[in-house]
Design a protein around this nucleic acid. Structure first.
Lengths: 200, 200
DNA sequence: GCTCCTATTGACCATTCGGTTAAATCAAGA
DNA sequence: TCTTGATTTAACCGAATGGTCAATAGGAGC
């Protein structure tokens, strides 16, 4: 059976969606041009026609995942809190629940992270996304440092932002490996306990 | 040329060492029975003779890496500190510098971590190692909670231990992706700033 | 020196993969 | 309706992979 003729954008979207499902199921390492084509219901030659090489498909899949992940959007509900500490609390909770609800995104991202060690293009994308992530926290941390310089003596906005990112990453990664024995609420409570005395 | 006859233990060790170098260079995904054999200077049939299947080689490599990584050894220098907070400080610093000095171990471990999402045997090993890691911190955190229950109100030993693991993992992982723009000392200073007022 | 056991190897096999190409098909415009 | 150009496919190719197997070599015990 022959696939209907379809506009280029639509077909690329269809193939990338199929690639996402295959990568979630088999991992990036187990992703093949043929499996993606089968998942999309087209011939494997068509995938190569639209993406040229498998490598480019994998790169575009990373962009696709990043674009589709509403990552770190500071909602109005959060922005409304006048105190930076409250915004930090809310942001941490939001991100942790988001990551725990999208385990497939997290796993896929972790795989790209590992791949980045050997592929510069992927590392660049990951690095940019990481920086975007840190920037959102840095803003809050700067305000926190301004409000209570004594409470965080020795810390810097960059360093504190990186620590906040570690909290979220660590939660997602530890929850991924043994979701049964990892209590996200308990984790979040402990994070809050550590920063609760700031600004009080 | 034919490889000399060698005791089984020695040969397995030689092959696992070669597998470690190949995995560090090409990644676990790029590890093939033939490349490991070439690195070890033996025929690829011999690798399969000693390990049966590629999958078993990869599993044994994980054990090998875990065994060879002197992970989280609380030295006497650290144990000598009477105050739990000082031990925590010292342990964090030790682990961060260790991980930053062994980036290949970290990268390989991260790859296994991602693999664990789809392979239960690997996930089990990783989970056990993670638990071992948490346990060392839990001990300190319990003491800290006992000393200053008000300072960490809301936190639990398990949760705080998981947070400490996140600090270390987050540092290693963020440093891996852009070692140039990540300042480990600044990060450690910020972590210390957050817990500095505990017990004072 | 001879035998026996096993570590070791080269040759081989079926499968899968990424990629190429020529042919077929379809839709739109003249 | 006919032409044209892009899309889609089947068939094919060479390379690499995991795994098997019969043959071989080499050392330990006799």
């Amino acid at each position: 059976m022959r696939a209907k003729r379809v506009p280029e954008d639509e077909r690329r979207e269809q193939i990338l969606g199929a690639a996402f499902r295959v990568a979630g199921r088999e991992g990036i390492g187990g992703l093949t041009v043929r499996s993606v084509a089968a998942e999309a219901g087209v011939s494997h030659a068509l995938v190569l026609f639209h993406f040229g090489r498998k490598e480019r498909l994998i790169h575009e899949l990373l962009d696709w995942v990043i674009a589709r992940t509403t990552v770190l959007h500071i909602s109005e509900d959060i922005a409304r809190f006048p105190h930076a500490l409250d915004r930090l609390h809310a942001l941490l909770q939001q991100e942790m629940t988001r990551l725990s609800r999208q385990p497939q995104h997290t796993r896929l991202f972790l795989e790209y992270w590992a791949l980045g060690a050997r592929h510069e293009e992927i590392r660049t994308r990951i690095s940019a996304e990481l920086e975007r992530y840190r920037a959102a926290f840095r803003e809050i941390m700067e305000e926190l440092l301004l409000l209570e310089p004594a409470a965080l003596a020795g810390g810097t906005a960059d360093g504190l932002a990186a620590v906040a990112v570690s909290w979220i990453q660590g939660c997602a990664v530890q929850a991924m490996v043994d979701p049964a024995h990892f209590d996200t609420d308990e984790y979040l409570a402990s994070v809050r306990a550590m920063i609760s005395r700031v600004g009080t």
